[in-house]
């Protein structure tokens, strides 16, 4: 099975049917300017410049240790950058906690290891942030939670604990949990890397649907099939730098940079 086939046909058809909706607007939503980050003396991110427009679906790929996760973690300040600017929806990320809170309210994140809260039910996981961050009344928050759990197709699991679900189900709960805050931007940090092969599809389907609705998405992933069908831009990183940035067709068919070619030849070889 090639990776391309892991994305279901209906989802792709849906995506293509709604292609007009997927037009990227010219409204800037994330601006990263000359950004550098160090871990101690280790220079992880070097001179990152990136503009993201509303509605874009960007896939970030690259060898492990290239700084791709660190980059998207800088966007919601899970990591602090030391130089340069990151502006998300007109809010600049600084040490100001108010700004950080404002950005985190707009930006949802999905992690490689789901990071669901094991002591809370699926429903409580989803309703938690609306209740405590947005002060939504509990009943209303649970309604919202059920709405998104239905969208990721697991409403029947609402009262279970995360430990009772499969990996794919857990990741879908994690996506629903982020959506409950109605974010304008979604960050995906290798959302399918910890999943068994047969569960990757169910998670990718949810992500494709999300893209179809015009969500701005930044996705670190090794799913090249997903990149080809969903992304409007692919970014290749290596050793903390953005090496190449292109639309997916150009990127896969005609990679410009030597390192990109090497990377693609390695991951597409089998």
């Amino acid at each position: 099975m090639t990776e391309q086939e892991q994305v279901s046909d209906e989802a792709v058809a849906e995506l293509e049917a709604g292609a007009s909706k997927l037009k990227v607007s010219d409204e800037l939503t994330i601006t990263i300017k000359e950004m550098h980050k160090w871990y101690g003396s280790f220079h992880v991110l070097k001179n990152i410049n990136l503009d993201v427009y509303r509605g874009e679906r960007i896939v970030i790929c690259g060898p492990s240790g290239s700084g791709k996760s660190t980059l998207i973690r800088c966007i919601n300040r899970l990591e602090e950058h030391q130089q340069g600017d990151i502006i998300v929806d007109n809010v600049e990320l600084t040490n100001d906690l108010k700004n950080i809170d404002a950005v985190r309210r707009e930006v949802g994140m999905v992690f490689q290891h789901f990071n669901l809260f094991p002591h809370l039910t699926v429903l409580e996981n989803c309703a938690l942030a609306p209740i405590w961050v947005k002060q939504t009344p509990r009943e209303e928050a649970e309604e919202i939670a059920m709405k998104y759990l239905t969208r990721v197709k697991i409403p029947e699991q609402a009262l279970k604990f995360p430990g009772q679900l499969s990996g794919g189900q857990q990741q879908r709960v994690a996506i629903a949990r982020s959506l409950c805050m109605s974010p304008r931007i979604m960050l995906f940090d290798e959302p399918t890397s910890a999943l068994d092969p047969e569960m990757i599809k169910e998670v990718l389907d949810v992500m494709i649907e999300l893209a179809g609705e015009g969500m701005t998405m930044l996705c670190v992933t090794h799913e090249m099939g997903f990149a080809k069908t969903v992304a409007n831009r692919v970014i290749f990183m290596d050793e903390g730098e953005i090496i190449e940035e292109n639309d997916p067709h150009e990127f896969f068919d005609n990679p410009q940079h030597e390192r990109t070619q090497l990377f693609l030849s390695q991951i597409l070889a089998h």
């Binding site: 899970l78 930006v107 290891h113 809260f117 405590w132």
Partner: peptide, 18 residues
């Protein structure tokens, strides 16, 4: 407690005490 728990809580916008 895995670091991911704090990160998930942070990413959702919960404050330290929450």
């Amino acid at each position: 407690i895995p670091k991911g728990q704090t990160e998930a809580a942070d990413a959702m916008g919960l404050k330290y005490w929450q």
